[in-house]
Simulated assay, not measured.
Amino acid sequence: MTMIHWVQAGTDALFGLQRLIRKQGKDVRVWTRDGISLDGISADIQQPYDHDRLSDAVQPGDVIVAPRPTEIAIARLAMDRGANMAVGWHVSDNLRAAVAGAAERGLVVMAEAGMVPGIEHLMARDLVNEYRHDARPGDVLHFTCYGGGMPKYPDNFRHKFNTSPLSLLNALATPTSWIGDGEVRHADFPFDVIRSHDLNLPTPERHQVYPHYDVAPYLQAYGFDPDWQIATAQRGAIRLKGWDQGWAEVFAHIRETGKDQKALRELAEVLWKQHPFMRDEADRAVLSVSLRAEAEGKTRWHREWVMDAAGGRNGFARFRLNSLMLALGAEAIVAGRISPGLHIGVTDPDLIANWLVEVTHQAGHSRRINHTRNPSEQAS
């Protein structure tokens, strides 16, 4: 019997947990954070998270689901106990080191399996897979991938938080790179290169975007051919118009303190107190992933995924989609659909297609647009 252990679970995990329990029955254990008890989840399968007790409970072949950034100790625990993992964390050097022997031991570690990072990986791979069938020598490619959460009804700050702002602040304090005009470009702070971006919704909206982290590893992960000519490639965040003005004081603070963790933790605590989402308040989860090919200066192929999901009384959209993705990841691991080793999301075309259907069903608005087709021929 394969047991699924969802660790450090809070209300943000409820949607995915309830799906897993419906499908996996009693083969789910919930390890709650901060000693809370989750409504709607049987008390028989939940208990407060404790590292030592989790270690005792996990058996070889089990699956550990870890949605939020946690200590690498959980990854080491999984490897020690012979367990698989589905996690929402970015792949880091520390994670790579902790799970270095996973493939040889037949263990699956699927990282970046939440909303962001996560759903945008599905969209990017879907576009790359389709373009590969139409690729022509001499094509010049432009790839952009943006995602983020935002309030549906914003204030002057243009942002609100339903989890700690610390990971976002760390990203803003981390140098970034992207490809522009065919060359690798760098910025010490992502907020130095904020620009406008028009989101292709039924009623178009102007937003702001900026690159964060490094794009090169993702081009390889998405299956870009090394021989393809890339003029533009950028992965980053999408924010509400005016976000740069609302965050001007935050940027100045980060520019002064850099990645000093004490200063960032203190700033995160202040921002979370000042700009939290209220209970049942509507958030938005937005994604825009585009791949365009030019030939002789003219667009000849262009596809784009756009998603706009709203939350409210049925819970935050970000939480719903994040936990859905992690539940899908756990199900796929249990079913033996993921090969051993460390993965950035899933690469199997059938899983990508199926998961995009699940995401579209939950998102409300999620659509792949063919920009080179006559508008009257576009599928809804």
Results as ranks from 00 to 15, higher is better:
residue 147 G to H: 10
residue 81 R to Q: 13
residue 88 G to R: 01
residue 310 A to M: 11
residue 10 G to A: 09
residue 266 E to V: 08
residue 43 A to V: 00
residue 367 R to E: 14
residue 156 N to Q: 12
residue 138 G to L: 04
residue 20 L to I: 04
residue 350 D to N: 12
residue 259 K to R: 15
residue 20 L to A: 08
residue 198 D to C: 03
residue 298 K to T: 08
residue 331 E to N: 05
residue 154 P to G: 04
residue 315 G to R: 03
residue 170 N to S: 12
residue 95 L to V: 14
residue 225 D to Q: 06
residue 117 P to V: 11
residue 195 R to L: 02
residue 292 R to G: 03
residue 189 F to T: 02
residue 70 T to K: 09
residue 222 Y to T: 01
residue 3 M to Q: 11
residue 92 S to M: 07
residue 285 A to Q: 14
residue 362 Q to I: 05
residue 356 L to M: 12
residue 267 L to H: 02
residue 184 V to L: 08
residue 313 R to W: 11
residue 28 V to I: 11
residue 165 P to H: 12
residue 212 H to D: 10
residue 245 Q to S: 10
residue 39 D to P: 07
residue 286 V to S: 00
residue 259 K to D: 15
residue 16 G to A: 07
residue 208 Q to I: 00
residue 322 N to V: 06
residue 219 L to E: 06
residue 104 E to Y: 02
residue 146 Y to Q: 06
residue 155 D to P: 04
residue 306 V to E: 01
residue 377 E to M: 14
residue 90 H to S: 13
residue 48 P to F: 05
residue 131 Y to S: 04
residue 372 T to D: 11
residue 300 R to C: 12
residue 311 G to K: 05
residue 78 A to P: 01
residue 316 F to Q: 11
residue 363 A to P: 03
residue 98 A to H: 09
residue 179 I to M: 05
residue 101 G to R: 10
residue 194 I to E: 00
residue 176 T to E: 02
residue 148 G to V: 02
residue 241 K to L: 12
residue 98 A to I: 07
